[in-house]
Design a protein around this nucleic acid. Structure first.
Lengths: 196, 196, 196, 196
DNA sequence: GATGAATGAGAGTTCATTCAT
DNA sequence: TATGAATGAACTCTCATTCAT
C-alpha cells in the first residue's frame, strides 16, 4: 500500500462534508482538514469546488447505473425489474440518500440565468429511466404516458422516500419504501383501484 | 397611496430575483437595483435577507391556503375536492411555480447539522394536506396509508408537475397537470389498474 | 407656553443619550425618538451629529464657567477658592459627570489626522484653569510649576474623581471627592508631608 | 524566518493606525494597506477587529508589567521603587504613550449601558498598582487612603504626563515627567508642604 | 417649518482560489 | 508534487444625512 491515495481521501471527505453540511456550508478548508490533506492539494485533482461536487455526483450516478444494469432482465416484467433494482439500490441507501438529495440544493443553488431544470448529472439518471419507461410502454406493461414526466416523478419519488422523509423523522425500512414506491407508481391511492 | 409603493417594488424584485437566481445568488444590491430603490430602503421594510425571503414564502403559502379553503366541500369526495383545489391553484401557477420550488433551496441551504426536513413554511402546507388525507382515509375514500408520507409525496408531485418540469422545457397545460396528478395519485401506472 | 421648545427637547434628549450610550452608540434616530421630534428637525437646529455634540459640551462648559466665576474671590487664597468652586460644581455633579467624561471619547473618537490632544471645548476649561494657576503662582500660593501641566492634571483629576471612579463602582460623596482632590493637589501622599 | 513577518507588519500597522486615528476611525482596509498586506491576511492572525485591538493592548500591558517587576525591590522605599519603575517605563515611552491613551477610547467606545469603568486590560495594571499601594500603606510609607482610588489616579497621571500632554504640544523629558509625577503624588502643590 | 422615508457610502467579515516555497 | 499563507472580491447590514411633502 503506497502512500495513501490522496484523491480518494479528498473524495471521501468532500462527500461526507457535503452530505452533512450541504454545498454552501462546506468550505474547502473543511474538506482539506477532514481529508488530512493540504488545501492546495484538492486543486491538483479538481478544478474548483463545483467540479469536485459534480465529480462526486457523477460517481454516485455511475455506481447506481451499474447496480441497475446488473439487475435488469429484459425478459422480466417492468415492475419486476423495478423491484429488483430498487432492492439493490436500497442496499446502498445510507451511502446515497443524504447525498443524492443534495444534488437538488446544488442545482437550485447556482441556477445561473438559464436553469435547465435538474443538473447534468441527474439528466443521466433521467435518460436511463426514460429509456426503461419507453420500453415498458412499448411492451404494453404500463399505461401510455409521457416517459420524461414519468421518469422525473420516479426520480423524485425515490428521493422523497429514501432521503427527504428520513430528514423529517419518518424512518422507513426497505420494505416500506418498496411498498410505497409501488403504491404510488403502480396502484394509486384510490380505494377500489387494483390492489397489489 | 404614494406614487410608487416601495414595499411592493421590493417584494416583487426580490421574488423575481430569488426565483431566477436562487437565494444565495441573490444579493441585496441586486434586489435594490431591480426594485429601483436604495439598498437601505429594503432594510426599512425587512429585517434582513432571510426575513425578506420568509415573508415572500409566507405570502405565497397564505394565498394558497385561502384558495384551497375556498374550494373544499366537506360533502364532496376527496378526489373531487383535490381536482377543484388543483384547478384553482393552477390559475396562479405562473406566480407560484418558480418560487415554491425555491423553498427547498433555502431549507437545504443552511442544513445546519440537523435540518428537520422541509422548512417551517412548507410544514404549514404539509399539515394542511395531512389533515385532508387523514379525513379521506377515515371516510374510506383512499387506501389506508401513512398520511404524512402521502402528503409529502403530494407536495412534491405538485412541485414537480408545475415547476420542475417546466424548467426542463416540458410544458404542461392545466389539464395535463391535473391528469398526471390524478394518474399517480389515484390510479397508478400499471396497465390493468382502474382507468380514469 | 408656546408649542414646546423643540431645540431644548433635542438638546436634552441628546445629552441623555450621549451620557447613557456614548457618542458612537447614540443614533440620530434615538435622539429624535427621545426628543419626540422628527429626525429632520434635529438638522434644522444642528448641522450634524458632531456639531450637536459640541454644542452640548459647550453648554456644560459655559455653565461650569459661570458657577466657577461666581465662587472665586480674588482676595481669598487659592485653595480656598478651589474648595468653594469644587463645592459648587459638585452640586451639579450628576448632570455633569457622565457627560464630561464623554468629552474624551468623542475627542479620541475622531482624532482625524492631527489630534491636538483634548478638544476645543476642553481647552476653554483648561485656559481658565491655567489663568487661575498662573495667578496663584504669582501670589506665591503654590509652588512654581508649569501652569499648563497643572491645569491638565487638575482637569483629569476632577474627571477621575467625579465620573470615572463611579463607573468602577467606587462611589464617593462630595466630601470625599473634595478631600481626595485636596490630597493629591495640595499635600501629596508621602507620609510626613504637611497634613491638612 | 520569512522574508517579511506579516503578523508583525499587521501588528505594527494596527498599532500605528489605532494610535493615530483611534479605534473606530481605523478601518481594516486601512490597516491592511498600511501593513502592505491583503485584508484577509489580518483575519488569519486575528479573529476580528476587537481581538486585534485587545492583543495590542495586552502586549503593551505585559511588557510594562515585566519592566515593573524587574525594578521593584521589596527592601526599598515605595517612592524609590516608583522612581525606578517610572525610569524604566519611560525608556519605552515612545512605544507606549500614544497607544496606552487609546485604551480609554476603546473602553468608553461601547459603553453598553453599564461600563464597568476601565477595560479588562487596564484592570490588570490597576490591580498591580493597588497591591503595591496597599503594601506601602501597610508599611506606613504613604498616608492612609483608598488604594483603589490612588491607583486609578496614578494610572491617569502617568497617561497624562506621558501621552496626553505631548499631544498638546507640551513636550516633557524623562526627568520632568518623573519630577511632576513626584510633585503630585508625593508632595502636593501647596507652598510650604514638604519639599523634595 | 417639520417630517421621516429614502438613501448609499462604507463598515467588518468570509472563503474559493492562487502560487511561492 | 504538496502545501497553506496570502489574497481580495463580494457579501450583508448600518446609519448620518437629505429632501419631497
Amino acid at each position: 500500500m503506497a502512500v495513501v491515495d490522496r484523491r480518494q481521501q479528498v473524495l471521501q471527505a468532500a462527500t461526507k462534508s457535503f452530505s452533512l453540511f450541504g454545498y454552501k456550508a462546506t468550505t474547502m478548508d473543511q474538506v482539506a482538514k477532514i481529508a488530512n490533506v493540504g488545501k492546495g492539494t484538492i486543486y491538483t485533482f479538481f478544478t474548483n469546488k463545483e467540479q469536485l461536487f459534480d465529480e462526486i455526483l457523477r460517481d454516485v450516478t455511475a455506481e447506481m447505473k451499474i447496480i441497475a444494469d446488473r439487475e435488469i432482465r429484459r425478459d422480466k416484467p417492468f415492475f419486476d425489474n423495478l423491484h429488483r433494482v430498487l432492492d439493490a439500490l436500497l442496499e446502498f441507501r445510507s451511502e446515497h440518500e443524504l447525498f443524492i438529495k443534495l444534488s437538488q440544493e446544488k442545482l437550485e443553488f447556482g441556477t445561473p440565468q438559464a436553469g435547465e431544470g435538474l443538473g447534468k448529472i441527474e439528466n443521466v439518471v433521467l435518460e436511463y429511466l426514460e429509456r426503461e419507461v419507453e420500453y415498458a410502454i412499448s411492451q404494453g406493461e404500463i399505461k401510455n404516458c409521457n416517459p420524461k414526466i414519468v421518469s422525473v416523478v420516479m426520480f423524485r419519488l425515490y428521493i422523497v422516500l429514501t432521503a427527504e422523509l428520513s430528514q423529517m423523522q419518518v424512518q422507513l425500512d426497505k420494505e416500506q419504501i418498496k411498498s410505497y414506491f409501488h403504491l404510488f407508481l403502480a396502484e394509486g391511492l384510490a380505494q377500489g383501484s387494483v390492489g397489489r
